[in-house]
């Protein structure tokens, strides 16, 4: 009988482990709402449609890096026909605030801080505030 109780106890432990996310969400005090991303006030569109940017911005950034560093191309024709300088620091972070945009979503998703900022600076942080 002692063995059976032991097995049941381990089984119960396994149940708790499997359903851990449920307990975790119940136990969490703060909200489970998606992050509040601060969008640039002076722009209507990004360089690509929102759906693409939301899911695949990392491909675009790597592609830009490749084109600028390896192929010396600097101009990007956006989906709505505008021309942009391919630059993370100049173009992306010219509009977006790193702390209130990039970081919020990356923290929410548990994405490791990408190594972009090993080299690039955050121009808004340098100026000390939002533009």
């Amino acid at each position: 009988m002692r063995k059976k109780i032991g097995i049941l106890a381990v089984l119960l432990g396994f149940f708790i482990l499997v359903t851990f996310p449920l307990w975790h969400s119940v136990g969490m005090r703060h909200s489970l709402e998606p992050p509040n991303l601060v969008l640039p006030a002076n722009q209507k569109n990004c360089v690509m449609p929102v759906a693409y940017m939301r899911s695949s911005h990392m491909f675009l950034l790597l592609n830009w890096r490749e084109l600028v560093v390896r192929h010396d191309q600097h101009t990007f024709r956006s989906f709505d026909g505008k021309s942009y300088n391919m630059s993370l620091t100049g173009t992306c972070l010219g509009c977006h605030n790193k702390q209130q945009f990039c970081d919020r979503c990356h923290t929410y998703m548990g994405v490791q801080t990408p190594n972009c900022f090993n080299c690039h600076v955050d121009p808004m942080a340098l100026r000390g505030g939002m533009r």
Binding site: P21, L22, H24, S25, V26, L32, P34, P35, A51, R54, S55, S56, F59, C105, Y108, M109
Partner: peptide
């Protein structure tokens, strides 16, 4: 073929609080 992970997480979290809803995106 990337999916919108933020919305996937929203869905996953909604599952954990027993009120599932998934974005059309």
């Amino acid at each position: 073929d990337r999916v919108d992970l933020e919305r996937v997480k929203e869905f996953a979290l909604s599952l954990t609080v027993l009120s599932p809803h998934i974005s059309a995106a």
